[in-house]
């Protein structure tokens, strides 16, 4: 057990009263996720490998009962949890966040403009990255050139569904991307609808964690695509995903009034 493991355990179990702690540790010559209870020694903790712990947590959450779970949380994870809590998918009271400030390199890799968690427990805050240069470049292109760029990228798609499987805010029980009308069973690459549906479906929830892009075997710059859609959301609705209080501006009545009920829809 390294100092980091000790510190994380202390914060999770002693300081914040969690029953379980989800973190990354060194095992079998690799780094992977592990869920431990108070007495367990998981070995050496690591925070430099960007596992999407919110996704990993939501996979196991239905089996967890009333246990209070702590997890290592970047700023984007915090925002993902806010999106999930807003929709009633996770219960704020059952989650303990341990704030992790991403390193300068991590911030650069994600071209991240919002990289400091509300409470920093681990690491030192880094400067945000002002822009995604590819997004800027694409925004300056003609519509035709931009479409050609994305078409070329989407041709590389091998339909692994990694962007969806690993996404912290993809939570529908029945995924529309597995619906025959839009993505017929005709092999690869999937048609245009596949990427467009995913794009719009995440418009009011994507927190730019970058997991889709990291998971993509074809190296499609999916995070850039997300940032461009999010920029439109900001311009059109002055809305940024990850806000615990504000409901999605897309969820309105025909008269543009916010839907009043507890919205569980995706």
């Amino acid at each position: 057990m390294n100092d980091l493991t000790k510190k994380l355990s202390e914060i999770a179990f002693e300081e914040r009263g969690a029953d379980l702690l989800l973190l990354m540790v060194e095992r079998h010559g690799n780094v992977g996720p592990v869920l431990i209870s108070k007495a367990e020694d998981p070995g050496n903790a690591r925070t430099d490998v960007p596992y999407q712990l919110v996704t990993i947590l939501t996979n196991i959450l239905p089996f967890m009962g009333k246990a209070k779970v702590a997890l290592v949380c970047r700023r984007c994870d915090e925002k993902a949890l806010a999106e999930l809590a807003k929709r009633g998918i996770v219960d704020d009271a059952s989650i303990v966040k341990i704030g992790l400030a991403c390193t300068k390199e991590q911030v650069q890799e994600c071209r991240c403009s919002d990289c400091v968690p509300s409470k920093v427990d681990i690491g030192e805050p880094s400067e945000p990255c002002p822009e995604d240069s590819l997004a800027t470049e694409l925004a300056a292109m003609s519509t035709e050139d931009r479409a050609a760029f994305w078409k070329r990228q989407f041709q590389k798609c091998n339909k692994c569904f990694g962007c969806t499987v690993n996404c912290p805010v993809c939570f529908c029980d029945d995924c529309v991307l597995e619906e025959r009308t839009y993505t017929p069973e005709e092999g690869i690459p999937p048609g245009q609808a596949f990427h467009l549906i995913r794009s719009f479906h995440l418009a009011d929830k994507c927190v730019e964690c970058g997991e889709c892009e990291r998971s993509c075997p074809a190296d499609i710059p999916l995070l850039t695509l997300r940032k461009m859609v999010n920029r439109d959301m900001k311009d059109l609705f002055n809305y940024t995903s990850g806000d615990r209080e504000r409901k999605s501006p897309l969820l309105t009545t025909l008269d543009d009034q916010p839907l009043e009920d507890d919205v569980h829809a995706c």
Binding site: N30, V31, G32, P33, V49, P50, Y51, I56, N59, N158, K159, C160, F161, G162, V165, N166, R214, S215, C216, P217
Partner: peptide, 17 residues
């Protein structure tokens, strides 16, 4: 479920369907 191993030299945290 399945979580890809990010530190694996061959698969690098990516998998196929």
């Amino acid at each position: 479920g399945v979580v890809p191993c990010k530190t694996d030299e061959i698969s690098q945290g990516r998998l196929c369907i």
